[in-house]
Design a protein around this nucleic acid. Structure first.
Lengths: 210, 210
DNA sequence: TGTACATCAGTGAACGCGCGTTCACTGATGTAC
DNA sequence: TGTACATCAGTGAACGCGCGTTCACTGATGTAC
């Protein structure tokens, strides 16, 4: 919808047409540049080329906008993970590695979503939608874990929830520390995807999955 | 200038005496309550019972104070980890578990330090001291990994840096998602320390460390 | 020991700024007849 | 098909507020002699 937005020659009617989306887009840009803290309602309005009062037609307040961004982030995240997992094709282990790589790729490609989702300090209790979408993303990982567990020797199979939390924590730690696409990334002398893949390999070996 | 500021009874001279420390203390309280974003220079001054201009005697600006908090956080973190590791006594595996538990305990006990250290969005390039102290904390973990590696079969020993990054990521992921002491914690049906210990056990099993 | 003086660590008033939010309003759009 | 009208989605001016920062200042402290 690149109709004509802030490009000067292009004029826009009295109605924006897609302000809600434009505000979310603006919020993402601001978060990407300055973190979730340095994002203001007023600046988002300005970026969307609209008066400071206009956003109130679409969001109750700043936090509501932020929560919507986080929710959409989780939706996109779920989709990316689902696609990477691809129902465990061609086999669970290979798909599982793709899933991990997708986690890191998301943090790298979408640092603004990532920090809105995990570091914005939103209370999950106040925004149940965000939480629901987050749970959905986790469910993808958990289902994948169940499929991987089925390939393990029967006497070594861990509880799926535990394994999912292990893999999530590991992926999240690598993503947040070393793979994020913003300036808070800490450099390491290897590719984050390789780091994760190696860890998962060792972990699965520990479960007898050689 | 009245003799006693907000706490009646306690009197303070014209000079505060320990303003630098008081400002850091105030910053920690504010961060704990409202996250690293919701901490302002002015409010820290107010909390320390001092005029808004006073902090400039001690810190160049808000970020400098935040960086100092992060640096002290890493110092305390290093100390907590070192103490937990206790030079690998009585044996590397047991001490290693204590080390992991100490990581989580720190995130739980000191959420303000934790988010100043890892989630404040400070540029590590601008504040090399913070980075140096962070590296020092990591070195504790890395040394511990070397000691644990020495207990593994010779043909399964991983590069110490890689193992340290694995364990750090795992611990950090669990801490940031499930063990933190503020309202961003996600509840899970088990103790975070147990979750971490189980993961480390499986990981070490994967390295032949049974 | 007392005193003069330099230095330090605060004050408090002032400033410009941008934010969040409200309000009465108005232009654009959709729809019933 | 045209028209009246309700509704929607904006405007723009205004407000109070707290922040960051500066400035000339002043009270307290340390020290040389």
């Amino acid at each position: 919808m690149t109709w004509h937005k802030d490009n000067p020659g292009a004029r826009r009617g009295y109605h924006h047409g897609n302000l809600r989306e434009a505000l979310i887009e603006a919020a993402l840009n601001l978060i990407r540049e300055k973190g979730p803290a340095g994002f203001t309602f007023a600046e988002a309005a300005r970026a969307a080329g609209v008066s400071p009062a206009a956003p109130y037609r679409h969001f109750r307040d700043r936090d509501a906008l932020l929560a919507d961004v986080a929710k959409r982030g989780f939706e996109a995240f779920t989709q990316a993970l689902t696609q990477a997992w691809d129902n465990g094709r061609p086999n669970a282990r290979e798909a599982f590695n793709r899933l991990g790589a997708a986690y890191l790729a998301f943090a790298s490609r979408e640092p603004a979503f990532f920090s809105a989702m995990f570091e914005s300090g939103l209370s999950l209790a106040d925004y149940p939608d965000v939480r629901t979408e987050g749970d959905r993303a986790f469910a993808v990982l958990r289902d994948a874990c169940e499929a991987v567990i089925a390939t393990l020797p029967k006497d070594r199979r861990p509880p799926p929830l535990m394994m999912a939390l292990h893999i999530w924590s590991l992926s999240h730690g690598i993503a947040a520390l070393f793979a994020r696409g913003d300036r808070a990334r800490r450099p390491i002398p290897m590719r984050p995807e390789e780091l994760l893949e190696a860890a998962v390999l060792i972990y699965l070996d520990g479960l007898g999955g050689r």
